[in-house]
Amino acid sequence: MLKPSDNLVDAIYADLRLKLQRSAVSPTDRLVDTEIANAHGISRMPAREALLRLVSEGYLVGTTRGFAVRELSLEDISGLFEVRRQLEPRAAACAARDMTPDIEAEITAAMNRVERALSESNIPALLAANVDFRNAWLKAVNNPHMAATISRFIDYFQSVRLGTFADPGAAYQYIDGLSRIHAAFLAHDPLMVQDRMTLFMFAAEEAYLSVRRRQLQEAETARPVRRRIQKRGTA
């Protein structure tokens, strides 16, 4: 339960945003303001305001049964990665230049958790550690507007990220790229970080597009089956 002194809207927003970052909300889940309010022991309006903020930022969409995760088209993924490639490599290079020992320790601890979660096939822990790694290096970006924008664009991919990490081959490739970026951060080499982040972006885009194509194909295949079931139910 939230404390009375908390800003309720901000607190619920932060809680929901963290769940979205960690892919704890699936595309089939529905977020309902009354259910969220009851879970936190508060009135409905702060929960609804937090949900509407997430809608305005592009994370959620309204449905007849509550709010749902925004699902990305193939064009969305390509367009978002185009923006990310303009921002993240340069920001990461600046982070490598300005990284403090404390932040370096944070990204190393996060990388260790990433590798442990991968070895244990613990996808929720892998998602959480991946978010921790990203948030740690973004602390070294001195432009807070840049850091916030990068964080927002990365979070748009949460509905696809779960499918990527569920594929062992894609997960190992993803973590290998992350490990190379981590090594470049430890070397405090801005150019190396920039180059490795750029390569990482291209590989991630390819993996995300592959997962999303498969999701769309599976949805298309399932559609006639659902229609037949519905027809039997009304016969």
Rank of each mutant, 00 (worst) to 15 (best):
E49C: 07
A39T: 06
R116E: 09
A187Q: 15
E82W: 00
S78K: 12
L20H: 10
D195M: 11
R17C: 02
V225N: 05
L191N: 08
E106I: 01
E104A: 15
M99F: 00
F133D: 06
T108L: 15
T149Q: 11
A128R: 12
D155Q: 10
N130P: 00
R48T: 03
L191A: 14
L16W: 00
R90G: 04
D189P: 01
N7P: 02
K3A: 15
M99L: 11
S151T: 11
I103A: 08
A129N: 09
D102G: 02
D6I: 00
H40G: 00
R116D: 08
L162V: 13
R226L: 12
A95R: 11
K19C: 06
P190M: 04
I229Y: 08
A117L: 09
A184D: 11
A50G: 03
S151Q: 13
E120L: 12
L52N: 13
L87S: 08
P224F: 01
Q215V: 10
L72A: 05
A93H: 06
A171N: 03
K231V: 08
Y156L: 08
K19H: 06
I229K: 10
R134Q: 15
A125P: 09
R134L: 14
T108Q: 15
K139Q: 14
G41W: 07
R232F: 15
S151L: 11
T149N: 04
L72K: 10
